[in-house]
Design a binder for these strands. Structure first.
Length: 286
DNA sequence: AGCACGCTCCGGGCGC
DNA sequence: TGCGCCCGGAGCGTG
């Protein structure tokens, strides 16, 4: 389940294809025709629009929250291929499909881009929750247009605290709300539990009952978790893989997620909040 | 209008 | 061996 650090690591891995041209591409039957009478997956806009990638050159890569994008140039026009990895998306840069050693990722390829250096860029997605879309402007793409500043921006902390303290979220539980990209982009289910544990805040606490100082500590904790994850190569739960097929070690650093006891030895509680599993310690968190 | 909430997409992995 | 259930990011429909 890629969150911001995993997406950032994928983006960094993909830097090596900057400068190459996309000669052509192939879409899986799931992408072309959907599955069992359902709508098409991954590429949800018109295939004609998607076809703009052909003969374009990748001139840079970017990321906002959990979205990454390839900035493309063709003749005199610039546009972007935005990608969201969903639950189980992964990119591979290989010479052919057989070089993808994990069989589920090989089996569930969705888009294959053939590059001008002879390699292929493969987007695989087992559960097909991911998305790829051509947009002219990144800033004009709605989810990004509405997104809060990146955690690395100087304004991010004030935006985080002030938005939470605007009154609009007074009755919300803190845990689901920090996963909202309009508050702070890139926090998913796992790192939400981790950051709340580190900042000693109960996930079931209502926003109105958390001081600005504690929210500031929570912001610090989220950044701490992001940076730690980046340094450990991300989390590999089941479906996240780096571009080269490697896996991260952050899952071994979890303090609460998926665990029975916290680092202090207290028994952990779990609760489903907004449909998602949440881990917390009633002794360490208030 | 704008918001909160629940449903939906999906296959691997697990328990029974 | 097979069946039912669980998991979750984010868009969408509903109230």
């Amino acid at each position: 389940m890629p969150e911001l650090p995993e997406v950032e690591l994928v983006k960094r891995d993909l830097e090596k294809i900057v400068g190459f041209e996309i000669i052509d591409y192939e879409l899986s039957d799931y992408v072309l025709n959907g599955h069992k009478g359902n709508k098409r997956t991954i590429v949800k806009q018109s295939l004609q629009e998607f076809n703009r990638v052909q003969y374009s050159t990748i001139y840079s890569l970017g990321r906002r929250g959990k979205y990454m994008y390839f900035s493309l140039r063709k003749e005199l026009s610039d546009f972007n291929l935005v990608a969201h990895l969903g639950m189980s998306g992964a990119f591979f840069i290989v010479n052919n499909l057989d070089e993808i050693t994990e069989k589920n990722f090989k089996k569930h390829w969705q888009v294959i881009f053939r590059l001008s250096n002879g390699q292929i860029l493969v987007y695989s997605d087992i559960r097909r929750f991911g998305e790829m879309r051509i947009v002219d402007s990144i800033e004009g793409f709605k989810p990004i247009a509405e997104m809060a500043p990146e955690y690395t921006e100087p304004s991010a902390r004030a935006h985080f605290i002030n938005t939470l303290k605007s009154g609009r979220y007074d009755e919300s539980f803190i845990k689901p709300i920090i996963m909202d990209a309009r508050i702070l982009p890139g926090v998913g289910n796992i790192y939400a539990s981790e950051a709340l544990y580190i900042s000693h805040i109960l996930p079931t606490k209502r926003v109105k009952n958390i001081s600005r100082e504690r929210l500031s500590n929570l912001f610090d904790a989220i950044i701490e978790v992001f940076e730690l994850s980046l340094s450990y190569g991300g989390s590999t739960i089941s479906d996240y893989r780096s571009v080269t097929g490697g896996s991260g070690e952050m899952q071994n650093k979890f303090k609460v997620y998926g665990l029975k006891t916290c680092s202090e030895g207290h028994e952990l509680k779990t609760k489903v909040m907004s449909g998602r599993n949440t881990y917390y310690c009633t002794k360490c968190q208030r």
